[in-house]
């Protein structure tokens, strides 16, 4: 795809994702995206009613990150007193402060990140967290459902797959139809568009 077409898709994606309450940032690569995830975890103020003690360590769930990168970040985070993990059996209490995962691809028309989770733990973590951070490669963006279809079909055909289209943070309008973000899932969704 040409560079301008790609930039258009990225612009459209950001516009549509923001329209449904997601935050959109840019980063050079996966490593930078991870650094941003660490930053939002660090800066997150514990909501007074988020459960857990106010002075408990902050937690970041990392899914889909290559081993070497994972260990590096575990160490960096550890120095700041942030707890990193990749399965829920650890110290996440009622859910991590933030959860990071890498999107398979994105759909610009709706501002959707399509995620393929390798386990139910990482799928649950992405919902139990208060801030969901998703790294999304700009070159993976497609215009609409039409282009998404073959990619998704291929994965559904596999023996075991968990595919989630995520569009904005979790929400409800069940009380007086007033839109409230952060129902059961994340209160915030941050999509980090990466160059590669």
């Amino acid at each position: 795809m040409s560079e301008t077409a790609n930039a258009d898709l990225a612009r459209l994606f950001a516009e549509n994702a923001r329209a449904v309450g997601a935050g959109v940032l840019e980063a050079k690569n996966l490593e930078e995206a991870l650094a941003l995830a660490l930053k939002v975890t660090r800066e997150k103020t514990k909501a007074p009613d988020s459960g857990g003690a106010a002075n408990a360590p902050k937690t970041l769930f990392l899914a889909d990150v290559p081993d070497e990168l994972y260990r590096r970040f575990e160490e960096t985070a550890g120095k700041e007193g942030i707890l990193v993990g990749r399965d829920l059996a650890g110290d996440f209490g009622e859910g991590p402060d933030a959860a990071f995962s890498v999107a398979l691809f994105g759909i610009s028309e709706t501002g959707t990140a399509v995620l393929r989770f390798d386990s139910d733990d990482s799928r649950a973590a992405a919902l139990l967290c208060e801030i969901q951070v998703v790294a999304l490669g700009k070159s993976s963006l497609v215009p609409g459902f039409g282009e998404a279809e073959p990619k998704m079909t291929e994965i559904m055909r596999e023996t075991d797959s968990r595919l989630v289209m995520v569009t904005g943070p979790s929400r409800t309008s069940d009380i007086e139809r007033v839109l409230t973000l952060g129902a059961h899932g994340p209160l915030e969704l941050l999509v980090v568009l990466t160059e590669d």
Partner: peptide, 29 residues
């Protein structure tokens, strides 16, 4: 899966005037 997308396009728009719901989860296996 090929039959999904027209419905995925119309259902959230009809139900809650959204282009798509916050989560569309597809579980195989």
């Amino acid at each position: 899966p090929g039959d999904l997308y027209p419905i995925l396009k119309a259902l959230p728009r009809s139900a809650t005037a959204q282009k798509i719901t916050a989560y569309a989860t597809f579980l195989t296996g």
